[in-house]
């Protein structure tokens, strides 16, 4: 299908964006990498009055570290996320996630801001930022506000973004020596949206004791799903096959997956258990890994 007729404006700064947004009205849509938005326009699923292209706004670009915070501009492309040394050092799960997102051509254009704003239930980055306990920085003509990632996502393709607001950056607490981060997913083909995925971020002492754990699933619900019970089952004791099994067991209450074309809820529950073990096994003491 062809796109509906609509307007297009490219802005160079946030100030210009606010003006254009005011003039365009609520039917206009922000265009970042276009990798989700343009596809939906081709299905005529939405008919925005116009597109406002934000990709030239310098303030939304760049990755930097200040104190204990890694700041990732919302226009950071998935490909950049995958090769940025600061990301690799301070939020390795994001670097690990990048190659799992789609294919090179899409990663060269798609942005982290676009992925978070879209809140696709099977997307990697929303789950990662929730697992990292990151903060989403949003801005509007009225100023800036900071939203904890867990509060930002509100269900299927739904976020806390208000009309007139955009995501400007993501702020991630930098990894410490105690941090353990990994992302595991099951896809039919490389680059597909996940049938089931898990972003796991743990804090572990040298003796293996887990001080904090955030297991966040994707592709098994309406968005980035924090598995509270499974996470809790890991905390306060050294990570062992037994605690991992307890976490797997707790998933029964944590997740209520819908079926999709790949299979029913039982398939998703099963895959969630499998990837829980696969993700956490990598953090087991080497003695137990070999066992």
């Amino acid at each position: 299908m062809k796109w509906p007729a609509m307007g297009y404006a490219r802005v160079e700064s946030l100030d210009e964006l606010w003006q254009v947004l005011d003039a365009a009205g609520p039917e206009a849509q922000i265009l970042a990498g276009g990798q989700s938005l343009l596809a939906t326009l081709s299905f005529r699923l939405s008919e925005p009055s116009g597109l406002i292209d934000i990709t030239r706004i310098a303030a939304l670009r760049g990755v930097s570290v200040a104190g204990a915070t890694l700041r990732i501009g919302s226009l950071t492309r998935h490909a950049e996320l995958g090769r940025d040394p600061l990301v690799a050092a301070h939020a390795p799960i994001l670097a690990e996630a990048a190659p799992l997102i789609a294919h090179p051509a899409i990663r060269n254009r798609g942005t982290i801001g676009g992925s978070l704003a879209l809140a696709d239930p099977a997307a990697e980055l929303p789950a990662c930022v929730v697992a990292l306990d990151a903060t989403i920085v949003v801005a509007s003509r009225g100023g800036e506000r900071r939203v904890p990632a867990a509060d930002f996502f509100q269900g299927l393709f739904t976020t806390d973004l208000q009309p007139g607001e955009i995501i400007t950056a993501v702020e991630v607490p930098v990894a410490t020596p105690a941090s353990r981060q990994t992302i595991v997913e099951v896809t039919r083909r490389s680059g597909d949206y996940a049938m089931a995925g898990l972003a796991a971020v743990l804090a572990m002492r040298a003796d293996g004791t887990v001080d904090a754990a955030r297991l966040v699933f994707f592709g098994v619900g309406s968005g980035a799903e924090i598995a509270t019970g499974a996470s809790a089952a890991l905390i306060g004791a050294p990570l062992t096959r037994a605690t991992i099994a307890a976490a797997q067991g707790a998933l029964a209450d944590d997740l209520d997956p819908p079926g999709d074309l790949h299979g029913g809820p039982e398939l998703k529950r099963h895959l969630a258990r499998v990837i829980t073990a696969r993700a956490l096994d990598t953090f087991l003491a080497s003695a137990e890994q070999a066992a």
Partner: peptide, 14 residues
């Protein structure tokens, strides 16, 4: 031969 069908054949899921 999808994951769903293979897991069913294995009896992993019903």
């Amino acid at each position: 031969f999808t994951p769903d069908r293979i897991l069913r054949a294995l009896g992993t899921i019903a």
